[in-house]
Amino acid sequence: MLAVQSAAFDPGQVLNEFTAKVGNSGAVVSFTGLVRDDTGDLKHMQIEHYPGMTEKAIGAMMDKAQARWNLTECTVIHRYGELAPNEVIMMVATAASHRVEAFEAADYLMDYLKSCAPFWKKEVSHSGDIWVASKQADEEALNRW
């Protein structure tokens, strides 16, 4: 399941529903990303995306993960718009027969979401606005796969 949405969601509920439909999988791994406020100055995070390309790019990553790690299920939810500190930005859940596959697939999806899904984050702070720069380490992380 893939959702790109502005609306908030409850990661606990998503995980419960996900776990309920994976049947005899044996292993479920999930990751939840939150808005971090490193300076204590953040008003909100503004997340922009490229409608159309976002869904295509994430769909392609999910297909690859599904095939490579033989996943029984896979879910990605990613929000856009204005998000307050500590709000949930996104979530990945994977289900497979064994934990190694589920962990690796979730890690792979996170690396690809960071650098290959067309989202851009802007930190809107009391002291001004700043576009979050991509880290070279994030693009290099793709070489792991």
Binding site: M53, H78, L113, A117, F119, A133, S134
Partner: peptide, 10 residues
């Protein structure tokens, strides 16, 4: 054709 900075998803 779309132009943008490096992506920062996740």
């Amino acid at each position: 054709v779309a132009f943008f900075p490096p992506m920062t998803g996740g």
